[in-house]
Each structure stands twice: as C-alpha cells, then as structure tokens.
C-alpha cells in the first residue's frame, strides 16, 4: 500500500476543473477517511494561494475541523459548508469559518454557498470537497442528486475548481455508481493504493 502522501500527489497531478471520486473502503473507514482528509486538506491545500471549501454532510464541520487541526491545517483558507449540524440539532457553537445549511436536502443552497465562498474569497486553485456522496444519497432521491451533481460539477469545472467527492464503496447503489461514472473524471480507490 502506498503512503497517504501519494493520494495528494495524484490529486495535485489532476488539472484544474477535474472531478475525482475518492473511494473509501467501509472496512477501513476511519483510516481511509483520515487519509482522504490529509490528501484534500493538508497535501492539496490550503497552501498560500489555494482555498478549500469542505461541504460536510456526513460529520459536523466542528468534527472535521478538529481532525483537520490534528493534521496541522490552518483556518486561513479552509471554509466549511455544513449541511448536517442543523438537522442533527448540533448547532450550538458555530465555527467562524463555516456557513450552515438547514438540511442536506437543500441542494441548491449548497450550490449557492459554494458559489458565495468562491466569489468572496477568490483563489487561483480552489478545491471543493464533498463529504459524502453516500450521505447526500440518504437524504435525496437519485434523480435529484444526479441533477445536482451534473450542474454543480459542470459549474465548478468551468471555473477550474478541482472537486473531490468522498464515496464509501459497497455502500452505493448501482444507480449512484452509474451517476458517478458520468460526472467524475477519475476515481482513486483508497483500498487499492500502491
């Protein structure tokens, strides 16, 4: 198995505007999740010129932020779009670098918050991380989700934004896999590194 740094290297090799699926093995979820965070938040950005927007649907932004801090990621250029804290009634201490959406069903709001952050904090090499496709699929019907990803990813592609979608393998339907095959340019399987 290759070191985690290899994932970051593969992501860096992708051209701006690419969409990549990061497949996590459910049997090694904790390790893979941490590796995905290290690759997207630490290895890929934020550096001095890049910004990362982390759309959290699986875990509250506060939890992801604490993991990011363990990776020595600073808050300067990391923004969260948190779509889960409200629905989990876990909205007591909002992060200063997070914007909150009431429910993971409000997909247009997710698009608009990402748009807002991209406009407000222009960056030459922005990255958007969506955590995760599976969580979005729990709250949204497949047709709606397909339309969401199609519009969002095309929009981000046209703006040269690198997008990473976290996907837990074995936990997806064939419809979801087909949709992902249509919208992403590359898949990195964290269970098959090296």
């Amino acid at each position: 198995m290759a070191p985690d740094g290899d994932i970051g290297e593969r992501l860096r090799a992708l051209s701006g505007g690419s969409a990549v699926a990061l497949r996590l093995d459910p049997h090694e979820y904790a390790d893979h999740y941490f590796a995905a965070l290290a690759a997207t938040l630490r290895d890929l950005g934020p550096d001095s010129s890049s910004m990362t927007i982390y759309v959290s649907v699986t875990n509250p932004a506060s939890l992801v932020w604490s993991l990011a801090q363990a990776l020595d990621v600073t808050a300067d250029r990391l923004w969260f779009v948190d779509a889960i804290s409200h629905i989990m009634m876990n909205y007591r201490d909002p992060l200063p670098n997070a914007t909150y959406i009431e429910s993971p069903r409000m997909l247009e709001d997710m698009m608009l918050r990402v748009e807002y952050l991209l406009r407000k904090y222009p960056s030459p090499h922005p990255t958007v991380v969506i955590d995760s496709v599976n969580s979005l699929a729990i709250h949204n019907p497949p047709d709606l989700l397909s339309e969401f990803f199609h519009i969002l990813l095309n929009n981000l592609k046209s703006r040269q934004v690198l997008t990473a979608l976290l996907v837990v393998s074995d936990d997806t339907t064939s419809a979801l896999d087909q949709m992902l095959a249509l919208v992403v340019d590359e898949t990195i399987d964290l269970g098959r590194r090296g």
Binding site: R113, Y116, D143, S146, F148, I151
Partner: peptide, 16 residues
C-alpha cells in the same frame, strides 16, 4: 439567496 455580496441564483432542481 440574498447574500452580503448580492443576490445569487442557482437552477431550481427538479429531479425529473
């Protein structure tokens, strides 16, 4: 969405 940087718009998703 009405934001401090102005009004932002996104397509209303229909999902078929």
């Amino acid at each position: 969405e009405l934001t401090p940087i102005g009004l932002l718009m996104a397509p209303h998703l229909k999902g078929g």
